[in-house]
Amino acid sequence: MVETMEKSNTTSDFILLGLFKHTGLHLFLFTVVLTIAISSLVGNALMILLIQQDLRLHTPMYFLLSQLSLMDIMLVSTTVPKMAADYLTGIKSISTAGCGLQIFFLPTLGGGECFLLAAMSYDRYVAVCHPLRYPMLMSWPLCLRMTVGSWFLGAADGLIQAVVALSFPFCNRREIDHFFCEAPTLVRLACADTSVFENVMYICCVLMLLVPFCLILTSYSLILAAVLRMRSTEARKKAFATCSSHVAVVGLFYGAAIFIYMRPKSYRSAHHDKVVSAFYSIFTPMLNPVIYSLRNSEVKGSLKMWLGKCANIKHHQTWSCSR
Protein backbone atom coordinates (compact mmCIF):
# COMPACT_ATOMS: atom_id res chain seq x y z
CA MET A 1 0.00 0.00 0.00
CA VAL A 2 2.81 2.41 0.97
CA GLU A 3 4.69 1.52 -2.21
CA THR A 4 1.57 2.24 -4.32
CA MET A 5 1.12 5.62 -2.63
CA GLU A 6 4.75 6.51 -3.26
CA LYS A 7 4.36 5.65 -6.91
CA SER A 8 1.24 7.79 -7.21
CA ASN A 9 3.01 10.71 -5.56
CA THR A 10 6.05 10.47 -7.81
CA THR A 11 4.17 9.78 -11.01
CA SER A 12 4.86 12.09 -13.92
CA ASP A 13 1.25 11.90 -15.16
CA PHE A 14 -1.07 14.90 -15.11
CA ILE A 15 -4.63 14.84 -13.78
CA LEU A 16 -7.44 16.31 -15.91
CA LEU A 17 -10.20 17.54 -13.60
CA GLY A 18 -12.65 17.37 -16.48
CA LEU A 19 -15.76 19.23 -17.56
CA PHE A 20 -18.49 17.30 -15.73
CA LYS A 21 -19.17 15.99 -12.24
CA HIS A 22 -21.03 12.79 -11.39
CA THR A 23 -24.46 14.30 -10.83
CA GLY A 24 -27.74 13.71 -12.63
CA LEU A 25 -27.59 17.05 -14.45
CA HIS A 26 -23.96 16.61 -15.49
CA LEU A 27 -24.66 13.07 -16.69
CA PHE A 28 -27.37 14.51 -18.93
CA LEU A 29 -25.02 17.24 -20.19
CA PHE A 30 -22.30 14.64 -20.82
CA THR A 31 -24.76 12.59 -22.90
CA VAL A 32 -25.70 15.70 -24.90
CA VAL A 33 -22.06 16.61 -25.54
CA LEU A 34 -21.20 13.04 -26.55
CA THR A 35 -24.17 12.95 -28.95
CA ILE A 36 -23.06 16.25 -30.49
CA ALA A 37 -19.49 14.96 -30.85
CA ILE A 38 -20.66 11.78 -32.62
CA SER A 39 -22.92 13.88 -34.86
CA SER A 40 -19.93 16.09 -35.67
CA LEU A 41 -17.80 13.11 -36.67
CA VAL A 42 -20.57 11.62 -38.81
CA GLY A 43 -21.48 14.96 -40.43
CA ASN A 44 -17.92 15.88 -41.35
CA ALA A 45 -17.11 12.37 -42.56
CA LEU A 46 -20.24 12.49 -44.75
CA MET A 47 -19.16 15.87 -46.12
CA ILE A 48 -15.76 14.45 -47.11
CA LEU A 49 -17.45 11.40 -48.66
CA LEU A 50 -19.84 13.53 -50.73
CA ILE A 51 -17.02 15.75 -51.99
CA GLN A 52 -14.93 12.71 -52.85
CA GLN A 53 -17.74 10.84 -54.65
CA ASP A 54 -19.38 13.67 -56.63
CA LEU A 55 -17.30 14.87 -59.59
CA ARG A 56 -19.26 18.15 -59.65
CA LEU A 57 -17.73 18.99 -56.26
CA HIS A 58 -14.14 18.46 -57.43
CA THR A 59 -13.35 22.19 -57.32
CA PRO A 60 -10.93 24.22 -55.16
CA MET A 61 -13.82 25.53 -53.03
CA TYR A 62 -15.01 22.06 -52.05
CA PHE A 63 -11.48 20.73 -51.68
CA LEU A 64 -10.85 23.44 -49.06
CA LEU A 65 -14.16 22.52 -47.44
CA SER A 66 -13.09 18.86 -47.27
CA GLN A 67 -9.87 19.95 -45.51
CA LEU A 68 -11.96 21.97 -43.04
CA SER A 69 -14.05 18.85 -42.33
CA LEU A 70 -10.88 16.78 -41.88
CA MET A 71 -9.53 19.30 -39.37
CA ASP A 72 -12.84 19.24 -37.49
CA ILE A 73 -12.82 15.43 -37.31
CA MET A 74 -9.28 15.47 -35.91
CA LEU A 75 -10.16 18.28 -33.46
CA VAL A 76 -13.09 16.32 -31.99
CA SER A 77 -11.03 13.11 -31.94
CA THR A 78 -8.23 14.85 -30.03
CA THR A 79 -10.40 15.90 -27.08
CA VAL A 80 -13.67 13.97 -26.80
CA PRO A 81 -12.52 10.29 -26.56
CA LYS A 82 -10.18 11.10 -23.65
CA MET A 83 -12.83 13.25 -21.94
CA ALA A 84 -15.44 10.49 -22.30
CA ALA A 85 -13.06 7.77 -21.07
CA ASP A 86 -12.08 9.86 -18.03
CA TYR A 87 -15.71 10.50 -17.11
CA LEU A 88 -16.88 6.90 -17.58
CA THR A 89 -13.92 5.17 -15.91
CA GLY A 90 -13.01 7.77 -13.30
CA ILE A 91 -9.33 7.47 -14.31
CA LYS A 92 -8.41 11.07 -15.09
CA SER A 93 -4.66 10.77 -15.49
CA ILE A 94 -2.91 11.57 -18.75
CA SER A 95 0.71 10.81 -19.51
CA THR A 96 3.23 13.49 -20.39
CA ALA A 97 3.35 12.15 -23.96
CA GLY A 98 -0.45 12.18 -24.23
CA CYS A 99 -0.59 15.71 -22.87
CA GLY A 100 2.10 16.79 -25.33
CA LEU A 101 0.16 15.30 -28.24
CA GLN A 102 -2.99 17.20 -27.25
CA ILE A 103 -1.01 20.43 -26.91
CA PHE A 104 0.48 19.81 -30.37
CA PHE A 105 -2.73 18.91 -32.18
CA LEU A 106 -4.98 21.65 -30.78
CA PRO A 107 -2.90 24.63 -32.06
CA THR A 108 -2.10 22.69 -35.24
CA LEU A 109 -5.79 22.24 -36.04
CA GLY A 110 -6.95 25.58 -34.63
CA GLY A 111 -4.20 27.59 -36.32
CA GLY A 112 -4.53 25.60 -39.52
CA GLU A 113 -8.26 26.29 -39.57
CA CYS A 114 -7.59 30.04 -39.21
CA PHE A 115 -5.46 30.10 -42.36
CA LEU A 116 -7.75 27.68 -44.18
CA LEU A 117 -10.73 29.99 -43.56
CA ALA A 118 -8.63 32.84 -44.99
CA ALA A 119 -7.92 30.73 -48.09
CA MET A 120 -11.64 30.01 -48.42
CA SER A 121 -12.42 33.72 -48.21
CA TYR A 122 -9.95 34.39 -51.05
CA ASP A 123 -11.70 31.67 -53.06
CA ARG A 124 -15.07 33.40 -52.50
CA TYR A 125 -13.54 36.78 -53.45
CA VAL A 126 -12.29 35.39 -56.77
CA ALA A 127 -15.60 33.60 -57.45
CA VAL A 128 -17.67 36.77 -56.89
CA CYS A 129 -15.37 39.53 -58.13
CA HIS A 130 -13.46 37.75 -60.92
CA PRO A 131 -15.63 34.79 -62.03
CA LEU A 132 -14.21 34.69 -65.57
CA ARG A 133 -10.63 34.55 -64.26
CA TYR A 134 -11.42 32.00 -61.53
CA PRO A 135 -9.52 29.06 -63.13
CA MET A 136 -6.39 31.21 -63.32
CA LEU A 137 -6.60 33.13 -60.03
CA MET A 138 -7.71 30.07 -58.02
CA SER A 139 -5.78 27.33 -59.79
CA TRP A 140 -5.27 23.87 -58.32
CA PRO A 141 -1.53 24.43 -57.64
CA LEU A 142 -2.36 27.60 -55.68
CA CYS A 143 -5.14 25.80 -53.81
CA LEU A 144 -2.78 22.98 -52.83
CA ARG A 145 -0.09 25.45 -51.72
CA MET A 146 -2.56 27.32 -49.52
CA THR A 147 -3.76 24.03 -48.01
CA VAL A 148 -0.24 22.77 -47.28
CA GLY A 149 0.68 26.20 -45.92
CA SER A 150 -2.29 26.13 -43.53
CA TRP A 151 -1.29 22.73 -42.17
CA PHE A 152 2.38 23.71 -41.94
CA LEU A 153 1.83 27.00 -40.07
CA GLY A 154 -0.55 25.32 -37.64
CA ALA A 155 1.87 22.43 -37.05
CA ALA A 156 4.79 24.81 -36.47
CA ASP A 157 2.81 26.67 -33.80
CA GLY A 158 1.67 23.41 -32.19
CA LEU A 159 5.16 21.93 -32.10
CA ILE A 160 6.68 25.04 -30.50
CA GLN A 161 3.93 25.22 -27.87
CA ALA A 162 4.21 21.52 -27.00
CA VAL A 163 8.02 21.47 -26.73
CA VAL A 164 8.32 24.67 -24.69
CA ALA A 165 5.33 24.02 -22.40
CA LEU A 166 6.61 20.55 -21.44
CA SER A 167 10.17 21.81 -20.88
CA PHE A 168 9.21 23.58 -17.64
CA PRO A 169 9.58 21.86 -14.25
CA PHE A 170 6.19 21.15 -12.66
CA CYS A 171 5.18 21.22 -9.02
CA ASN A 172 3.82 18.22 -7.12
CA ARG A 173 0.23 19.31 -7.70
CA ARG A 174 -0.21 18.28 -11.31
CA GLU A 175 -3.96 18.85 -11.61
CA ILE A 176 -5.13 20.59 -14.80
CA ASP A 177 -8.48 22.34 -14.38
CA HIS A 178 -9.63 21.42 -17.89
CA PHE A 179 -10.87 18.45 -19.89
CA PHE A 180 -7.83 18.43 -22.18
CA CYS A 181 -4.22 19.61 -22.13
CA GLU A 182 -3.43 22.98 -23.63
CA ALA A 183 -0.40 25.18 -23.12
CA PRO A 184 -2.09 28.13 -21.27
CA THR A 185 -3.53 25.86 -18.56
CA LEU A 186 -0.45 23.65 -18.29
CA VAL A 187 2.07 26.44 -17.69
CA ARG A 188 0.06 27.54 -14.63
CA LEU A 189 1.41 24.41 -12.91
CA ALA A 190 5.05 25.22 -13.66
CA CYS A 191 7.47 25.86 -10.79
CA ALA A 192 9.37 28.46 -12.82
CA ASP A 193 8.92 31.90 -14.29
CA THR A 194 6.79 31.41 -17.42
CA SER A 195 6.02 35.08 -18.09
CA VAL A 196 8.27 35.29 -21.18
CA PHE A 197 6.71 32.17 -22.72
CA GLU A 198 3.18 33.34 -21.88
CA ASN A 199 3.79 36.74 -23.47
CA VAL A 200 5.33 35.19 -26.60
CA MET A 201 2.49 32.65 -26.78
CA TYR A 202 -0.06 35.46 -26.43
CA ILE A 203 1.58 37.41 -29.29
CA CYS A 204 1.70 34.27 -31.48
CA CYS A 205 -1.97 33.54 -30.79
CA VAL A 206 -2.93 37.11 -31.64
CA LEU A 207 -0.96 36.92 -34.91
CA MET A 208 -2.40 33.49 -35.77
CA LEU A 209 -5.88 34.91 -35.28
CA LEU A 210 -5.56 38.48 -36.53
CA VAL A 211 -3.49 37.95 -39.70
CA PRO A 212 -5.99 35.51 -41.28
CA PHE A 213 -8.89 37.54 -39.87
CA CYS A 214 -7.59 40.70 -41.57
CA LEU A 215 -7.30 38.78 -44.85
CA ILE A 216 -10.88 37.56 -44.42
CA LEU A 217 -12.13 41.09 -43.68
CA THR A 218 -10.28 42.42 -46.74
CA SER A 219 -11.79 39.72 -48.96
CA TYR A 220 -15.31 40.35 -47.77
CA SER A 221 -14.95 44.11 -47.96
CA LEU A 222 -14.06 43.74 -51.63
CA ILE A 223 -16.92 41.24 -52.09
CA LEU A 224 -19.41 43.63 -50.46
CA ALA A 225 -18.24 46.49 -52.65
CA ALA A 226 -18.63 44.30 -55.74
CA VAL A 227 -22.10 43.10 -54.68
CA LEU A 228 -23.32 46.65 -54.07
CA ARG A 229 -22.28 47.55 -57.62
CA MET A 230 -24.34 44.70 -59.10
CA ARG A 231 -27.52 45.81 -60.84
CA SER A 232 -29.14 42.39 -60.96
CA THR A 233 -31.06 41.36 -57.83
CA GLU A 234 -30.60 37.72 -58.79
CA ALA A 235 -26.83 38.17 -59.00
CA ARG A 236 -26.79 39.78 -55.55
CA LYS A 237 -28.78 36.92 -54.05
CA LYS A 238 -26.42 34.39 -55.61
CA ALA A 239 -23.36 36.23 -54.30
CA PHE A 240 -24.78 36.44 -50.78
CA ALA A 241 -25.75 32.75 -50.88
CA THR A 242 -22.22 31.88 -52.00
CA CYS A 243 -20.60 33.72 -49.09
CA SER A 244 -23.12 33.48 -46.23
CA SER A 245 -22.13 29.95 -45.16
CA HIS A 246 -18.47 30.87 -44.90
CA VAL A 247 -19.26 34.08 -42.98
CA ALA A 248 -21.31 32.08 -40.45
CA VAL A 249 -18.49 29.57 -39.90
CA VAL A 250 -15.91 32.38 -39.53
CA GLY A 251 -18.12 34.14 -36.97
CA LEU A 252 -18.54 31.00 -34.84
CA PHE A 253 -14.89 29.99 -34.96
CA TYR A 254 -13.31 33.40 -34.41
CA GLY A 255 -15.82 34.42 -31.74
CA ALA A 256 -14.86 31.48 -29.55
CA ALA A 257 -11.12 31.67 -30.34
CA ILE A 258 -10.87 35.39 -29.59
CA PHE A 259 -12.73 34.88 -26.30
CA ILE A 260 -10.27 32.16 -25.29
CA TYR A 261 -6.91 33.52 -26.44
CA MET A 262 -7.16 37.31 -26.64
CA ARG A 263 -8.67 38.24 -23.29
CA PRO A 264 -6.50 39.86 -20.59
CA LYS A 265 -5.47 37.47 -17.79
CA SER A 266 -7.57 39.36 -15.23
CA TYR A 267 -10.75 38.44 -17.12
CA ARG A 268 -10.00 34.73 -17.43
CA SER A 269 -11.62 31.97 -15.37
CA ALA A 270 -11.15 28.21 -15.66
CA HIS A 271 -14.90 27.54 -15.81
CA HIS A 272 -15.53 29.98 -18.67
CA ASP A 273 -12.47 28.69 -20.56
CA LYS A 274 -13.73 25.10 -20.33
CA VAL A 275 -17.21 26.01 -21.57
CA VAL A 276 -15.93 28.07 -24.51
CA SER A 277 -13.30 25.43 -25.33
CA ALA A 278 -16.10 22.87 -25.50
CA PHE A 279 -17.95 25.19 -27.88
CA TYR A 280 -15.12 25.62 -30.39
CA SER A 281 -13.71 22.09 -30.13
CA ILE A 282 -17.02 20.14 -30.10
CA PHE A 283 -20.03 22.28 -31.05
CA THR A 284 -18.52 24.33 -33.90
CA PRO A 285 -17.24 21.25 -35.79
CA MET A 286 -20.80 19.90 -35.73
CA LEU A 287 -22.27 23.17 -37.01
CA ASN A 288 -19.86 23.50 -39.96
CA PRO A 289 -21.30 20.67 -42.12
CA VAL A 290 -24.85 21.65 -41.10
CA ILE A 291 -24.31 25.26 -42.21
CA TYR A 292 -22.70 24.28 -45.51
CA SER A 293 -25.23 21.56 -46.33
CA LEU A 294 -28.35 23.57 -45.49
CA ARG A 295 -27.26 26.70 -47.37
CA ASN A 296 -25.59 25.04 -50.37
CA SER A 297 -27.75 23.67 -53.17
CA GLU A 298 -24.85 21.69 -54.71
CA VAL A 299 -24.13 19.87 -51.45
CA LYS A 300 -27.85 19.18 -50.90
CA GLY A 301 -28.12 17.87 -54.48
CA SER A 302 -25.11 15.61 -53.96
CA LEU A 303 -26.58 14.31 -50.68
CA LYS A 304 -29.93 13.51 -52.34
CA MET A 305 -28.13 11.72 -55.18
CA TRP A 306 -26.05 9.68 -52.72
CA LEU A 307 -29.10 8.75 -50.63
CA GLY A 308 -30.89 7.76 -53.85
CA LYS A 309 -28.02 5.47 -54.82
CA CYS A 310 -28.02 3.90 -51.34
CA ALA A 311 -31.78 3.36 -51.56
CA ASN A 312 -31.45 1.72 -55.00
CA ILE A 313 -28.67 -0.58 -53.80
CA LYS A 314 -30.76 -1.60 -50.79
CA HIS A 315 -33.78 -2.17 -53.04
CA HIS A 316 -31.78 -4.39 -55.43
CA GLN A 317 -30.32 -6.37 -52.52
CA THR A 318 -33.82 -6.94 -51.07
CA TRP A 319 -35.17 -7.97 -54.48
CA SER A 320 -32.27 -10.40 -55.02
CA CYS A 321 -32.78 -11.96 -51.58
CA SER A 322 -36.55 -12.36 -52.20
CA ARG A 323 -35.80 -14.32 -55.38
Rank of each mutant, 00 (worst) to 15 (best):
M1I: 15
T4A: 12
K7H: 10
N9T: 10
T10S: 10
T10N: 11
F14C: 03
I15F: 15
G18A: 01
K21F: 15
T23R: 01
T23G: 05
L25T: 06
L27F: 12
L27D: 14
T31F: 11
V32G: 00
A37V: 01
A37D: 00
I38S: 00
S39G: 08
L46G: 02
I48S: 03
D54E: 02
L55S: 06
L55H: 11
T59A: 00
M61R: 13
F63H: 03
S69P: 00
D72M: 04
M74D: 05
S77V: 00
P81D: 09
A84V: 10
Y87W: 06
T89P: 00
G90F: 02
I91Q: 15
S93P: 01
I94E: 10
I94H: 06
G98R: 07
Q102L: 03
F104C: 00
G110Q: 11
G111K: 05
G112H: 03
G112Y: 07
E113I: 12
F115A: 04
F115E: 05
L116D: 07
L117Q: 04
A119D: 04
A127V: 07
L132N: 13
L132A: 13
R133S: 14
M136V: 11
L137W: 08
S139I: 00
P141E: 08
C143A: 12
C143I: 06
L144W: 15
R145K: 15
M146W: 14
M146G: 07
M146F: 12
T147V: 11
T147L: 12
A155F: 09
I160C: 09
I160E: 08
V163I: 14
A165E: 02
L166A: 02
C171I: 10
E175M: 02
D177K: 03
H178T: 05
F179G: 02
C181M: 04
C181G: 03
E182D: 07
A183S: 09
A183L: 06
T185A: 14
T185L: 12
L186F: 01
R188H: 13
R188S: 07
A190D: 05
C191K: 01
V196T: 07
E198A: 07
V200W: 05
M201H: 14
M201G: 08
Y202S: 14
Y202V: 09
C204I: 11
C205F: 15
C205R: 14
C205Y: 15
L210V: 14
C214S: 10
L215Q: 12
I216E: 08
I216F: 13
S219Y: 13
S219Q: 09
S221W: 15
A225N: 14
L228W: 15
M230C: 11
T233P: 08
A239K: 06
T242C: 12
S244K: 08
V249W: 12
V249Q: 06
G251K: 04
A257R: 13
R263V: 07
K265C: 06
S269I: 06
H271R: 09
D273L: 10
D273E: 13
D273C: 04
K274T: 09
V275H: 01
V276Y: 02
F279R: 01
Y280I: 14
I282F: 06
I291K: 05
S293C: 06
L294C: 09
N296Y: 03
S297T: 07
G301N: 09
S302M: 04
M305A: 10
W306P: 00
C310A: 10
H315A: 11
H315Q: 09
H316D: 10
Q317M: 10
S320A: 13
S320I: 12
